Amino acid sequence: MCINHTDRRGFFKAAAAAGIAVAGVSAMAAPAAAHERTLPLGEKVALTNVRIFDGDQVTFPRTVVIDNGRIGISSLGARRIDCGGAMLLPGLIDAHIHLRDVNTLHALAGSGVTTGLDMASFPPSLVDSLRGLPGLTDIRSAGAPAVAPGSPQSQIPTFPADAVLTGPEQATQFVRSRIAEGSDYIKIIIDEPGLSPETIKAVTTAAHSAGKLVMAHATSTATVVRALDADVDMIHHVPMDSPLSASVAARYVSTGTVAVPTLTMMEGFGNLGIPGMDYAAAEGSVAALRRAGARILAGTDANLTPGIPVQPPYGTSLHHELELLVHAGLSHREALRATTSLPAQAFGLPDRGAIRIGNRADLVLIDGDPLADITATRSVRRVWVGGVEYTPTPA
């Protein structure tokens, strides 16, 4: 059954109000995307003497079973690994990356990032070549974003011509083309000057009619308001010209819009000394969103895009992002949720984000307690992606 845009938002709001962890829905009940490959049949493993972050607190030591790529029930016949009281987290999710090549996936997996949500990559063959690789980070992608004529993206020689929109009449075909190419969600670049409000709204409407979430790039107060007016699902980045006001932050909550601040990228641009790009404004915006009760996800904007002056490294930058979110006012618990259960819910990935029977065995074993010290997430000991333990490539 397809949940339409309005029902989807209502579903997550109702689930949150009732205290239901949407990410805990059994993977058996969720239809797989057409391009998603079956998890490989891996070794049955029992991780013993391991503490678990359950989305709220850390449990006493217990056993977690990895069985054919999923979290299993019985440890009978499993190879046992004594974790010595270390902590097990759900696989981390980076809600904003830009794919480059298979080395991207190795860097992500090695840092415990088991799901990467790409926010602009092309051609489609690149994205397809990186999907479903056993033991490497699982990905989703927006494909090519909608941009305005004359934008920096439109000047890239390989950028698809049908993603450069001159008016709202092109919106439906743009969305159809992205879906045909396999895009998992739709992205719009909202800049000043840029796409008209009518075009932004038309793309959003066409995407929602097709059952796709809409991501908006917005880095100023004016473009954030434009994104909210268009009823997008998620706004990536936060303003660097001035902090979001309480009233604008409240609109995220009233509309169900999700925030992906990418503070790592904002910090990088703030360090360049460009007039009008103040990292304090970005941090203040996150604080305002947190006070308002908005859903905030961890995303880094990790990239190796030529010509971009700030290139956060894949994987390790997510740990920095969590530290920046805590510094901006999120609790350690909220920061951990921002990279586990919340992005799984927001992106409709019910088989991950929590360590529950039937979920994908996306797991990160770490030393320390990130509820006491968020930097503990950096102490990655072992990683499993879809039940396959990540093995670094030989140097």
Rank of each mutant, 00 (worst) to 15 (best):
32 A>K: 07
286 V>F: 02
45 V>N: 01
272 L>F: 06
367 D>W: 14
120 A>L: 11
148 A>W: 14
102 V>D: 08
283 E>C: 15
283 E>H: 07
31 P>A: 04
284 G>A: 04
116 G>N: 05
235 I>C: 00
308 I>C: 08
370 P>C: 00
294 A>K: 00
90 P>K: 06
100 R>F: 05
287 A>V: 15
52 I>N: 12
124 P>L: 13
155 Q>P: 04
233 D>S: 15
292 A>H: 06
260 V>I: 10
199 T>C: 12
183 S>G: 03
268 G>R: 03
252 Y>I: 02
136 L>N: 01
294 A>V: 04
105 L>Y: 13
47 L>Q: 01
349 L>N: 05
145 P>V: 11
127 V>Q: 03
211 G>V: 04
163 A>Q: 03
156 I>D: 05
44 K>S: 02
50 V>H: 14
386 G>D: 06
135 G>W: 13
12 F>M: 12
143 G>Q: 05
171 A>W: 07
90 P>D: 05
129 S>V: 12
3 I>C: 11
149 P>I: 11
164 V>N: 01
341 S>M: 08
73 I>S: 10
55 G>A: 02
146 A>I: 02
207 A>I: 01
229 D>A: 14
12 F>L: 13
25 V>K: 10
200 I>V: 11
136 L>F: 10
54 D>M: 03
218 A>W: 05
248 V>E: 01
322 L>D: 12
244 L>P: 09
257 T>C: 13
53 F>S: 05
321 E>T: 00
125 S>G: 12
210 A>Y: 05
319 H>W: 04
136 L>K: 07
29 A>F: 13
283 E>Y: 08
37 R>H: 07
394 P>L: 06
224 V>M: 08
222 A>V: 09
291 R>C: 10
285 S>D: 07
209 S>I: 01
157 P>C: 00
384 W>I: 14
160 P>Y: 15
279 Y>W: 09
330 L>Q: 11
57 Q>T: 11
